[in-house]
């Protein structure tokens, strides 16, 4: 029993991290109509900002995280204003090529600012707890809480507030939304800022378990993209659910079947599900005009 509880808590933690990254990608996909392949490297860059801030000024983790998030928001706004705003009229394929270009740019910017040596980053909390015979670190509990709380807050904002309505309107049809007086350009900018902030939080949760390096977000980025596709791109809820599902499946497989091949098995099953249902679990069938 305690092993299963342990796995459940681990999945909630990794799932939360994954959900943050996934939410960033789906926010941008719905508002800008493009997959943001650069989400991972932007988060990596912001984690570098936070880690650099911590080592330079000696502030504690929370202040550094705040610095990282502020950095992420400004990076997001900067990207939107400098690049994405000029691509509104482009085909969505060109937009995604632009985000692939951003990936390469950030892979170059990171060593330019922070050097080639990986940095370290602290945990949010120390010590462990025992819940139902399962040992859990306090930092994992904090991560779980941040993940669930942020998701709940975001869904509340999207579903219940006026800004959420603006986001949903932009997502469903940005031309009509603009005609109705919704400032779609500010909505898109906000989506990029929030997405960068979510991604950087995810990166800062990952950082203590590895180091802050250039490849830290690669596998999370790939899994998050797959979570978006698996959950279906028509809703905000689907991808987040898929993120938690993937984390749970991955942990179960790595415990009961094979820890080495867990990723491969998960990817293969996602591909299998996509073969049966190309629109994802919660996806609506896209109707194509000819």
């Amino acid at each position: 029993m305690n092993i299963f509880v342990q796995i459940l808590f681990n999945s909630l933690e990794t799932g939360g991290i994954l959900a943050l990254a996934t939410m960033g990608i789906i926010l941008i996909f719905r508002t800008s109509k493009a997959f943001n392949y650069a989400q991972g490297v932007i988060s990596m860059f912001c984690a570098f900002i936070a880690a650099w801030f911590m080592s330079e000024t000696g502030f504690n983790v929370f202040v550094s995280t705040l610095a990282g998030v502020v950095g992420a928001v400004s990076v997001g706004i900067l990207i939107d204003r400098v690049v994405i705003k000029r691509t509104i009229k482009l085909h969505s394929v060109s937009k995604q090529i632009v985000t692939l270009g951003l990936v390469i740019v950030f892979l170059g910017l990171a060593p330019m600012f922070f050097g080639n040596i990986p940095l370290t980053y602290g945990r949010f909390a120390q010590g462990t707890q025992t819940i139902m015979d399962a040992t859990i670190t306090n930092s994992a509990l904090v991560n779980i809480f941040i993940g669930v709380a942020l998701m709940a807050a975001l869904f509340f904002i999207i579903q219940k507030t006026k800004w959420g309505l603006a986001v949903r309107a932009t997502a469903s049809n940005d031309t009509v939304a603009r005609m109705m007086g919704i400032p779609t350009s500010i909505v898109t900018m906000g989506a990029w800022a929030v997405a960068a902030a979510l991604g950087s939080l995810a990166a800062m949760m990952v950082a203590p378990t590895t180091t802050v390096n250039f490849m830290m977000m690669d596998s999370i980025q790939i899994t998050a993209l797959l979570a978006c596709v698996l959950g279906g791109l028509g809703t905000f809820f689907g991808p987040v659910f898929a993120a938690y599902l993937i984390a749970l499946a991955r942990n179960l497989i790595s415990f009961y079947i094979s820890s080495v091949w867990a990723d491969a098995i998960v990817y293969l099953s996602i591909l299998g599900i996509l073969l049966i249902n190309p629109n994802g679990i919660f996806g609506k069938k896209l109707v194509k005009k000819v």
Binding site: V83, R86, T87, L90, S94, I97, V98, L100, G101, L102, V103, I104, V105, F106, L107, G108, L109, A110, P111, M112, G115, N116
Partner: peptide, 19 residues
């Protein structure tokens, strides 16, 4: 001598060409 110059060159070029 700047670190990561090759990446920035390629990345900026791809963005400009795509746009």
């Amino acid at each position: 001598d700047v670190n990561g110059l090759a990446f920035i060159f390629t990345g900026v070029l791809i963005i400009i060409v795509a746009m």
